[in-house]
Amino acid sequence: MSDPTGYTVGWICALRVEYIAAQEFLNEEYGKPSFVSPNDANDYTLGRMGEHNVVIAVLPDGEYETASAASVATSMLNSFHNIRIGLMVGIGGGVPSESHNIRLGDVVVSAPRGGESGVFQYAFGKSIQDQTFQHTRFLNQPPAILRAAMAGIRTQYERKRHQLEEAIDDILEKNMRLRRKYKRPEPFEDRLFLPEVIHHQAGSAICAVDPSTLVLRSERADDEDNPAIYYGLIASGNQLMKNALIRDRLAAEEDVLCFEMEAAGLVNTFPCLVIRGICDYSDSHKNKEWQGYAAMVAAAYAKDLLQRIPLNRIEAEEKISAVVSG
Results as ranks from 00 to 15, higher is better:
Gln307Cys: 11
Phe270Cys: 06
Arg84Val: 02
Val323Trp: 12
Gly93Gln: 01
Ile229Asn: 09
Tyr122Phe: 13
Asp130Thr: 05
Ser282Lys: 11
Ala295Gly: 13
Lys126His: 08
Ile102Ser: 06
Val108Cys: 14
Ile20Val: 11
Cys13Gln: 03
Ser321Met: 11
Leu46Cys: 00
Cys279Pro: 12
Ile278Phe: 06
Lys286Trp: 08
Ala251Pro: 15
Leu305Trp: 05
Leu15Tyr: 12
Glu315Lys: 15
Asn243Trp: 05
Arg308His: 14
Val256Leu: 10
Ala228Phe: 05
Ala73Tyr: 00
Lys303His: 05
Asn175Val: 11
Cys272Arg: 02
Ser71Tyr: 02
Glu219Cys: 06
Leu46Gly: 04
Asn287Gly: 03
Asp280Trp: 12
Ala221His: 11
Leu245Met: 14
Gly86Tyr: 00
Glu289His: 15
Gly105Phe: 10
Leu250His: 13
Gly152Cys: 04
Leu15Asn: 07
Gln307Ala: 09
Ile145Lys: 09
Ser68Ala: 13
Ala302Asp: 08
Pro195Met: 04
Ser99Asp: 05
Ala57Thr: 07
Phe25Asp: 02
Ala263Cys: 12
Pro4Trp: 01
Ala57Gln: 02
Tyr231Cys: 09
Glu18Pro: 06
Asn53Gln: 05
Val17Pro: 07
Ala235Phe: 11
Gly86Asn: 03
Asp223Tyr: 15
Val324Trp: 06
Phe25Ile: 06
Phe259Cys: 07
Asn42Phe: 03
Gly232Phe: 03
Glu219Gln: 13
Ser110Ala: 14
Leu311Asn: 06
Leu172His: 02
Ser204Asn: 08
Pro142Ser: 03
Arg84His: 10
Ala322Val: 12
Tyr64Ile: 10
Arg217Ser: 11
Leu26Ser: 00
Asp283Gly: 02
Glu224Ile: 06
Glu51Pro: 14
Tyr281Cys: 02
Gly326Pro: 09
Leu214Ile: 11
Ala144Arg: 13
Asp304Leu: 12
Ala228Asn: 14
Pro96Lys: 12
Ile153Thr: 10
Pro38Glu: 00
Thr136Gly: 00
Glu260Arg: 10
Gly62Arg: 07
Leu46Tyr: 05
Asn101Ala: 14
Leu311Pro: 10
Thr155Tyr: 08
Asp61Thr: 11
Ala144Lys: 13
Lys174Cys: 10
Val17Asp: 04
Arg217Thr: 05
Thr5Met: 09
Gly237Leu: 04
Ile102Cys: 09
Gln201Ala: 10
Arg103Ile: 05
Ala111Tyr: 15
Tyr7His: 01
Met261Trp: 04
